Computed example of a mutant assay.
Amino acid sequence: MRSTQTALAEGPASKRDRFQRCFLEDDFREGLQAFMDERAPVFRQRELGDTRQGSAHGA
């Protein structure tokens, strides 16, 4: 079985785990905070655990 073809019972759990991981991303938190602050977000396009400095969107 290929990794993309999971058992029916495993699918929802896998989707839930990936969705929850979004909340840990720096860009997700920046987007949410920018929305609450009513300002444009400054995304750094970094992945979870990436410590490199990214460039701001549009800079």
Rank of each mutant, 00 (worst) to 15 (best):
D37L: 12
K15C: 08
L48F: 13
H57P: 00
M1K: 07
S55Y: 05
F23G: 10
F28G: 04
G11S: 06
P41I: 01
P41L: 01
E25G: 04
F35C: 04
G54D: 01
V42W: 03
A13I: 09
L48I: 11
F19W: 09
L48D: 08
R2K: 11
F35L: 13
D17Q: 13
D27K: 02
T4V: 05
D37F: 05
P41N: 02
E38N: 12
D17Y: 05
D50F: 02
R52P: 01
D27R: 00
G31A: 06
S3C: 04
T51A: 11
R39H: 03
S14Q: 14
E25Q: 12
G31H: 01
A56V: 08
G31E: 04
T4S: 10
S14I: 07
L24C: 07
K15H: 07
S14G: 12
R29M: 08
F35Q: 08
K15V: 13
A13V: 11
R44H: 13
Q45W: 10
R52A: 15
A56R: 14
A59I: 06
L24Q: 14
Q20E: 12
R16D: 11
D27Y: 01
L24P: 00
M36S: 02
G49F: 04
D17V: 03
G49C: 03
R2T: 06
S14E: 13
M36V: 04
L8Q: 07
K15T: 09
R44W: 06
T4A: 06
G31V: 02
E47G: 15
A56G: 08
E25R: 15
A59R: 15
T4L: 07
R52H: 15
H57R: 13
M36L: 12
G11R: 06
Q45E: 10
P41W: 01
Q53Y: 11
Q5S: 07
E38M: 08
M36D: 01
Q5W: 00
Q20K: 10
R16S: 11
F19I: 11
A7L: 11
D50I: 02
R16T: 13
S3V: 05
L24V: 01
Q53F: 11
A9F: 03
D26M: 07
R21M: 09
Q53L: 15
Q33S: 10
Q20D: 09
L24E: 15
R44E: 09
G11P: 00
A34S: 09
R18P: 00
P12A: 07
L48Y: 13
